[in-house]
């Protein structure tokens, strides 16, 4: 055997794994179904869309901003060789983030660091809540 994956091999480790499988947080709450996983957050100035996209350069990603949505498209390549184990997803993927809020379309920025994509969508100035002063007639 070349790389040993025998079930009897690392016995103490097997018990750890058994427990971990019981308490896996991601699978338990039914997330992780869509690929890639997304985090969406906001602060006073912007909306942030983050995604885990390991192994992809920014050029291999296609980000499209339409009127109502942000579309994330790309393809994860497969490595050449004889596989013993394949867990990393491969192939085309696409995710659509519906934007129900107006954003400053010209100020949208995307960065990719350590396999995590961050898209910053600034809230537009005109759409921020404003106080309207009422003049007494």
């Amino acid at each position: 055997m070349v790389l040993d994956f025998n079930t009897l091999y690392a016995f103490p480790g097997r018990f750890d794994r058994l427990f971990e499988e019981f308490f896996k947080p991601q699978l338990a709450d039914g997330r992780r179904l869509a690929y890639p996983p997304l985090n969406v957050s906001e602060d006073d100035a912007s909306y942030y869309v983050r995604s885990e996209l390991p192994g992809l350069p920014l050029e291999a990603l296609e980000l499209t901003l339409t009127d109502k949505s942000l579309i994330l498209k790309g393809e994860r390549p497969t490595e050449q060789g004889k596989y013993f184990r394949q867990e990393r997803p491969a192939g085309f993927f696409q995710r659509v983030v519906a934007l129900n809020v107006p954003v400053d379309r010209d100020g949208v920025k995307a960065t990719l660091a350590d396999g995590v994509l961050t898209v910053v969508l600034p809230k537009c100035e005109e759409c921020k809540p404003r106080k309207i002063s009422i003049d007494v007639a």
Binding site: V2, P54, E79, F84, Q86, E87, R88, D114, G115, V116
Partner: peptide, 18 residues
Amino acid sequence: TDILEREDGFYVYMDIPG
């Protein structure tokens, strides 16, 4: 994790974003 074999040995790929 992907584990695969090529002419010059074995390769292990792990997705560890962030």
